[in-house]
C-alpha cells in the first residue's frame, strides 16, 4: 500500500482541476475497488480526491423522458429506487446480482463504471501484466484464464470487465455524462469502455481529469420483456463467467427492438447491433435466438481454461432471450 495525499473536493470544478493536473491522482467515491487495488500496490496514486461530498447523488427525470442518475448514487439505492424497479427492472436485477449487499451500499454509480478487471494476474504484482505494467507481458494468456475474454481480446490482454451493472446499461443504451477540464460531454455507453488493443492499461475512453457526473437512461426501459442471466461458480457473491442482459420490445409476438449485451466475456460489455437486428421483424422463436447467439459469438476465441465460455455464452444468450420473451416459465437461473 503506497502513501497518498488526500483532498476533499467541495465542488465539481475543483475536483476536476485537481485530477487533471496530476496523472497519478484518482477520484474516490465508494472506494470498493480503488482501496482494494491500492492495498495490493496495483494502483499507486499519489493523490486521491474525495468526491463523495459533491452534489451528484440525485435520481431525477432525464431530458428525453428517461431517468438521470447522479454519479454518486449508491448501487443499492439505484437498484431499489421505485422508478428503476418499475421502469428499468433489468438494471435493478443486474445490480443486485453483483457483489454483496454491503458493497452495493458503498459502491457508486460512476465507480461501478470505473471498476477494473478482476484478472488474478492483474492483482498479483509479482506476475507479468500489460494492463498493470505495460510491456511486461500477459501471464493469463498461457496461464489460468478461466475467467478471461473470448471476444475482442488482444495478444496484449485478455482481461474482462467485471461489472454487472454496466452490462445492463449497455443494453439500455445509457449515456454517460462527464465533465472535464475542457468542459462537459456526453458519451454513448458503447463508446465509454474500450477494447484492450495495444493499450490494455486503458479501460475507458475518459480523458485525464474527466469526472462522471451522471448516467442517463433513455425512455425505453424494456420493463416488460427483459432478463439478466448471470452464470458464476457459486450461487452469489462471485463474478460472472458469462452474463447476459436481454431486452425485447414485442408487438403481437413480433420483435420490434432487441438488445443483447454480454458480460464476463470481453474487456467491455459486448454488443453486436447486426446480430441484434437479426431478431427485428421476426416472431419469437428459439431458432432466431440461436441465430443471434451464433452471430454474437462469431470470432470468439478460447484461450484454454476459458474455451467452455463460448458454448456457455451461446446457451446463456438463448436462455436469456427466451426468458425475456416470456417463453419459459422459469425465473432467471440463479447463477
Amino acid at each position: 500500500m503506497n502513501r497518498f495525499a488526500y483532498l476533499r473536493a467541495d465542488d465539481v470544478g475543483a475536483a476536476v482541476r485537481a485530477v487533471a493536473a496530476d496523472p497519478s491522482a484518482r477520484f474516490i467515491a465508494g472506494g470498493t475497488n480503488l482501496v482494494d487495488l491500492i492495498k495490493e500496490n496495483v494502483e499507486r496514486p499519489t493523490r486521491i480526491v474525495d468526491i463523495t461530498r459533491l452534489p451528484l447523488g440525485e435520481i431525477g427525470p432525464g431530458e428525453r423522458g428517461g431517468l438521470r442518475i447522479g454519479a454518486l448514487v449508491k448501487n443499492s439505492d439505484l437498484a431499489y429506487h421505485p422508478e428503476v424497479e418499475r421502469r428499468y427492472p433489468l438494471l435493478s436485477r443486474a445490480i443486485l446480482s453483483g457483489a454483496s449487499a454491503q458493497l452495493r451500499n458503498m459502491a457508486s454509480t460512476g465507480g461501478n463504471l470505473m471498476q477494473r478487471t478482476r484478472c488474478s494476474y492483474f492483482y498479483d504484482t509479482t506476475t507479468p501484466c500489460n494492463k498493470r505494467e505495460p510491456g511486461t507481458g500477459c501471464a493469463a494468456l498461457g496461464g489460468f484464464n478461466r475467467m478471461h475474454a473470448i471476444l475482442g481480446a488482444s495478444e496484449q490482454c485478455i482481461a474482462v470487465n467485471p461489472s454487472d451493472m454496466s452490462v445492463a446499461l449497455a443494453a439500455l443504451e445509457a449515456v454517460v455524462h462527464v465533465t472535464g477540464p475542457e468542459g462537459d460531454r456526453a458519451i454513448a455507453f458503447a463508446e465509454f469502455h474500450r477494447l484492450p488493443g495495444d493499450a490494455p492499461q486503458l479501460d475507458t475512453n475518459l480523458r485525464q481529469g474527466e469526472l462522471i457526473t451522471a448516467v442517463e437512461l433513455p425512455a425505453l426501459g424494456f420493463a416488460e420483456h427483459h432478463a439478466y442471466l448471470k452464470i458464476r461458480d457459486r450461487a452469489s457473491y462471485a463474478f460472472a463467467l458469462v452474463s447476459v442482459a436481454a431486452a425485447l420490445e414485442l408487438q403481437g409476438g413480433t420483435v420490434t427492438e432487441a438488445r443483447v449485451a454480454l458480460g464476463g466475456v470481453a474487456h467491455k460489455p459486448w454488443r453486436d447491433r447486426e446480430a441484434e437486428a437479426l431478431l427485428v421483424g421476426r416472431r419469437v422463436a428459439l431458432e432466431h435466438f440461436q441465430r443471434v447467439a451464433d452471430a454474437l459469438l462469431q470470432g470468439a476465441v478460447g484461450r484454454g481454461a476459458n474455451d467452455f465460455k463460448i458454448e456457455l455464452a451461446r446457451r446463456a444468450i438463448v436462455r436469456a432471450l427466451s426468458h425475456a420473451a416470456g417463453r419459459t416459465s422459469r425465473d432467471d437461473a440463479r447463477r
Binding site: Y6, I28, V35, Q102, L103
Partner: peptide, 27 residues
Amino acid sequence: CDHGQCGACTVLVDGRRSNSCLSLAIM
C-alpha cells in the same frame, strides 16, 4: 480478508451495512 471478499469487517455506517476494510476513515 481486508479486501471486501468475506464480510467479517461489516459495520453499520450511518445505519447501513458496509465493509469497513474498504472504507478510508478520513472519508
